[in-house]
Write a protein that binds this DNA or RNA. Structure first.
Lengths: 207, 207
DNA sequence: CGCCTTGTGCACCGATCGGTGCACAAGTGC
DNA sequence: GCACTTGTGCACCGATCGGTGCACAAGGCG
């Protein structure tokens, strides 16, 4: 699915090789950011869970913001793949269904923190977190654009009625997905959220 | 609508009277928490905006957690009154409409921070923010209970069909409200979110 | 082997965190 | 006036924040 971090950063192998698995460490960091948010995850929290020293973290990932960015990238590839999978569905209705169903499952995955890193990672933050916050705002907007473009295509192809508003449909689904994330953080179960998702799509396309 | 803070804390007037307006200071603190979240709002941020010294803040409000609790209380009374107003509507359909319309307006109020303090105030936090996070989880759950009880009453009264699920309806509306908050933080406008709210209620009651 | 480059562990940086001790100011009640 | 109670401003607390300097370890390459 994705290459290991060491392979992505292709550099000549000179000097002492690192003693830890950068990919595993990045996955650990992703979890910490997912659970505690950008501001709530201290370097001590992160490096302890990653099993490496501060110095090794900085050498391998740059700084805290870059680590967050790379963790979000992994999150996108691993936890948010359902978005791309949904977009590939045959019809707009299947796209919507798969998108919300995927959101329900991704936000209530056993063994994973509840909710979505892209939502709760940095919603309201202090001065030190504005970069992370803006990164996530752009991340969520990107997903919404993907949906909008897909629905625009559906309109063009006649899959959706000509009067359908792709922008509205995308925002509608993303709003529900965002709400599902908040609900999951509050302890809502997969079954409860699945019923919500089903209700949200009872009338599709809404018009 | 609500008494001034000084009046609530009824105590004999002995000793030097405080030089600042505790109610105004609390409203300022509410704004800071609203904008930056519990963890993101430092005591320096808070006291500077409140216009008082750290010592005065501690004397008047206890500590940061209590200040947050009291700020949330004010927020509930001032910004989230639309919930109680919606609950008082005649029919379940009007309750739902007023609830979502109120959420849209409260989350995009000009001159106020976008989004909802109860959502973005403390979603994913570090060790220092767990109390605030759990407070907000309970706060959101309480609003959802109000909706559920109101819809249960509607079922009992025949306003909603006997097969309607009050718990599901309440969670559905709260999920959309939560999503609206996230969307507002991302820059969505009142008009855009109002269309989302309208779409969410096109088919009411969903069944 | 020695040279060079890079990773690692530890101590440490200045800044900021939430919270407080203390001296003094400003009121009320006598 | 006095005693008493409480608010205020400032300096300061230990802890923690993100980030680094430095000595040394561990590999490739000649």
């Amino acid at each position: 699915m994705h290459k290991a971090y060491d392979e992505l950063v292709e550099k000549a192998q000179v000097g002492r090789p690192r003693e830890f698995d950068a990919e595993q460490a990045l996955l650990k960091a992703m979890r910490v950011f997912w659970e505690q948010g950008y501001d709530g995850a201290s370097l001590t929290d992160l490096t302890e869970r990653m099993g490496i020293s501060r110095k090794s973290m900085y050498a391998a990932f740059g700084n805290k913001e870059e680590l967050f960015r790379k963790a979000l990238q992994r999150y996108t590839e691993i936890q948010a793949v359902y978005v791309l999978e949904a977009l590939a569905a045959e019809t707009a209705g299947e796209v919507a269904t798969r998108f919300l169903d995927g959101a329900v499952r991704a936000n209530t995955r056993p063994g994973c923190p509840p909710g979505c890193l892209g939502v709760q990672g940095a919603l309201a933050v202090g001065a030190t977190g504005v970069v992370a916050r803006d990164t996530l705002i752009a991340w969520r907007a990107l997903g919404q654009e993907y949906l909008r473009d897909r629905f625009q295509r559906a309109v063009d192809e006649g899959d959706l009625p000509a009067g359908a508003d792709p922008d509205l449909l995308a925002r509608y689904l993303m709003t529900i997905s965002n709400g599902i994330s908040v609900q999951a953080t509050g302890g809502a179960t997969e079954e409860e959220l699945q019923r919500v998702a089903d209700v949200a799509l009872l009338n599709w396309p809404p018009a």
